[in-house]
Write a protein that binds this DNA or RNA. Structure first.
Lengths: 217, 217
DNA sequence: TCAATAGTGTCTCTTAGACAATATTGA
DNA sequence: TCAATATTGTCTAAGAGACACTATTGA
């Protein structure tokens, strides 16, 4: 017998940049269906407690990984009778960004393994239609960077322009010219230089910046 | 008592350009809730017959307006317990484009009035949160035009470059330079000039074009 | 001093934007 | 011929891209 209502869920692609590579958080499914494959953290809408699907997304991410994220954005909604063997499903995909210094904060459920996986070429076999979802999420993220958005939520509180550039490069998948990159950030109000604060090393010190108050993406 | 499952629906913003104005199709609600207000054509997912939400969107548009559209694209998904007084709802918004010479093809249900309404500043009071949805749909459409997409699905089969430019201007809400506009279309494979076919009038004839085979947006 | 990276400058080439000039029709 | 619109050209300024140069540290 056919079901009357579809499953309604939210999935989250949580991005991070590790070792100059754009990575995404995946959870190994421990139960059927598709046990052993890797999927985005996701879960079913709870109409009693969720105020909208954004809430659902934030909640499932918190439940599955213990991470609360500052920024969450809708990518698209996927639907159909066959994408999940349990039946007709509608799942709205979100993406979120995590600063690389918070990577250790991510913890799996007792029974589930989690892993940071190369977002451009995942080394795990994905469950359901999540390869499609991943493409969509990466595409949307790239789009924003190409349109001059700054992925500051991927960076720690204080960062240098070089780190920012490397983060953009990891997302775009190709190098950027240092001079051009910095020219664009001239007088950009989204960036605030921290007076007198520098990143030191065996080279010329690098000015540290933080994101402007109220910055959202 | 709370409901266990949300309503799952698709809404469609069907755009057209009439008299150089971007317009959207609205349906006057004849029944509660919100009778008398105007809303996008929309309807509830039928898991038995719809293969996905795109299907739902196409079907409800056909049912409500008798129009089958060549192009349909997802905008975003809106959700929450209060946006529809009937309870927790999830609705995925699509937009579609209709050539202006097909405006008369649109017909309402027996009991419902339909109207083309100014998309930038609607003259009707919208139902539910559809003012939000309208903003999102117009925004997405503008975005695509700004990124050099051609809204050929808003034009009749044969059209001139001037008509194409005016269509873009209607979407963007501001004028474009004729010379610049045409420069961009130089050697654009999306446009095919029709050899020897011109639009005549009391002026220099204008070359007619059609969209390239397989053109999608 | 040197290696390493930060940060700036310069040159060229492409393009956007504004506007002018020319072309072709019907009245 | 004129009015109207199509179509093309030209000039200028801004920006992108490539690359070189200078600056400042620790070793």
């Amino acid at each position: 017998m056919k079901q009357l209502f579809p499953m309604v869920m939210a999935d989250v692609a949580l991005f991070i940049v590790l070792n100059q590579q754009l990575c995404v958080l995946l959870v190994e499914r421990s139960n059927a269906p598709q046990a052993g494959r890797w999927a985005f953290p996701g879960g079913i809408l709870k109409p009693d407690t969720d105020h909208n699907l954004d809430d659902t997304a934030r909640r499932v991410l918190l439940e599955k990984t213990r991470v609360d994220v500052p920024y969450l954005e809708q990518v698209a909604t996927f639907s159909g009778p066959d994408r999940d063997p349990r039946g007709w499903s509608v799942s709205t995909l979100y993406y979120a960004l995590l600063p690389h210094d918070r990577a250790p904060a991510v913890a799996g459920h007792k029974t589930e393994a989690v892993a940071w996986c190369n977002a451009q070429k995942p080394e795990h076999r994905l469950a359901f239609d999540h390869d499609l979802l991943l493409k969509a999420a990466v595409g949307k993220l790239r789009d924003k960077i190409e349109r001059n958005a700054l992925p500051l939520h991927l960076l720690p509180e204080k960062f240098t322009l070089t780190e920012l550039q490397q983060t953009c490069e990891a997302i775009l998948g190709h190098g950027l010219d240092k001079s051009v990159f910095r020219r664009h950030l001239k007088d950009d109000s989204r960036l605030v230089p921290l007076p007198g604060e520098f990143l030191l090393g065996s080279q010329r010190p690098a000015q540290l910046y933080r994101s402007a108050p109220g910055f959202r993406f």
